[in-house]
Design a protein around this nucleic acid. Structure first.
Length: 400
DNA sequence: CGTATTTGACCAGCGC
DNA sequence: GCGCTGGTCAAATACG
């Protein structure tokens, strides 16, 4: 798995904002008790057998995470207090937010429903929406989207500014261009072995293009996020030229909407890995400048010599996680995906032997997720999302 | 019929 | 300036 972070603040979803946390809490409450994954996964199949397989795999892959969620319902109060203490560490805030979103299933925050939540038109469980009173006028939103797009096109045609473009097409308003410049600087690349045409990350994507890239016989597919209204997040999917069993997924931009439950649940676990990657001794190995982030060299993440490296040609740092690489035999902490010692520590608890107890301990529920992570390369996408979120929250505290 | 995908065309950036 | 390349658009097509 390879993760490239090209900007200091690559927030896929700015969880540190209170409103967004409320979104998450509301969503978790909202979907609680529903059958796993049905409510958050719409059909992705285009009619052929392969994608049908993908859909089935997605549902099956959801199960361990649902189990993790259920286990979190039984989490002790002590553990919650333990989590509260974690909030004192700014660099741990993302983990806590995600965990709280996971364990808070009693609906305490229902009255705090953010009206913006109603703007998201792709939560497919309309029945639940109606029951909760949060009606989603899908057709109305689609008409609104089209109106916005038409306005944007008119704007760009009559307002030929010299604003710098960031690899975008021609049909974009000045305001949107400005937005894109800010939002699309983030980039996260994931390398994972997968036979599927696209790994499932809990989000909804719509394909908008495909190109043959130079030096690779496999076409590169372009997707955009369709969950939020005019969500700027894009992703590219391409098979590795050297090893076509490796799927390279590159995410770019920040989601402007709450993540679907499936993505949140996965991120709740994988954010632990993200935390490990973006905190601790990492700053010892890279340039110490705080802002803007500039890497002067390639660094190997501590404890993850074959999983994660950081490198960049300034000013864009690159974190590279490669779960496709084989791991040494006989390592008791090897989970098969290269998530050796430090990540194992996150999953199993603080390792007092090496003195590094600053890493987040997610407790027993995550052991289920660990198994899922070991068995499911699609979680790489969730990890990428989590890492992006973590790094955004670590701005100023993590040297990148 | 509405929505998603495909695919050729178009545009901008970049190197020569 | 020109050609190459990557990224996006949008009409055509497929699908449920």
């Amino acid at each position: 798995m390879e993760i490239e972070i090209l900007e200091e603040n690559p927030r896929i979803f700015p969880m540190e904002h209170e409103e967004n946390q409320k979104h998450v809490l509301k969503e978790m409450d909202f979907f609680q008790g529903s059958t796993c994954s049905k409510e958050v996964h719409t059909k992705h199949d285009d009619g052929d057998g392969d994608d049908e397989q993908i859909e089935k795999s997605t549902i099956e892959d959801e199960v361990p995470w649902k189990a993790s969620e259920d286990n979190n319902n039984q989490i002790t109060e002590d553990k919650i207090v333990k989590d509260d203490k974690m909030t004192q560490k700014h660099e741990m805030s993302q983990v806590l937010n995600l965990r709280q979103a996971t364990i808070n299933t009693n609906g305490d925050n229902q009255e705090e429903l953010n009206p913006n939540f109603l703007d998201h038109d792709n939560y497919s469980n309309d029945e639940h929406l109606n029951e909760s009173g949060a009606r989603d006028d899908h057709s109305s939103n689609m008409a609104h989207k089209k109106a916005i797009l038409l306005a944007a096109k008119k704007s760009i045609s009559s307002n030929n500014t010299n604003m710098a473009r960031v690899g975008m097409g021609a049909s974009m308003s000045k305001a949107k261009q400005s937005h894109e410049v800010t939002m699309r600087q983030a980039r996260v690349s994931v390398r994972a072995r997968s036979e599927a045409s696209m790994i499932s990350d809990g989000c909804q994507w719509r394909k908008y293009g495909q190109k043959m890239a130079k030096g690779n016989p496999c076409p590169r597919a372009y997707y955009r996020c369709t969950i939020g209204t005019s969500c700027p997040v894009r992703k590219q999917v391409q098979r590795c030229a050297e090893d076509r069993s490796i799927l390279i997924t590159t995410y770019e931009g920040q989601h402007n909407h709450p993540l679907p439950t499936a993505a949140i649940t996965m991120a709740a676990t994988t954010s632990a890995a993200a935390s490990m990657l973006t905190t601790g001794s990492m700053s010892n190995q890279v340039d110490g400048s705080m802002n803007p982030p500039v890497f002067s060299q390639t660094a190997t993440l501590p404890g993850l010599p074959s999983l994660a490296t950081i490198s960049a040609s300034a000013p864009f740092p690159t974190i590279t996680l490669d779960l496709t690489r084989p791991q040494p035999q006989g390592n008791p902490n090897n989970n098969g995906l290269g998530l050796v010692s430090p990540l194992q520590q996150i999953f199993t608890g603080p390792n007092k032997e090496n003195g590094n107890s600053n890493l987040p301990y997610l407790g027993e529920p995550v052991s289920v997720a660990r198994a899922a992570l070991a068995a499911d390369p699609t979680l790489a996408a969730a990890l990428a999302t989590a890492i992006s979120s973590m790094i955004s929250n670590n701005k100023g505290t993590v040297s990148m």
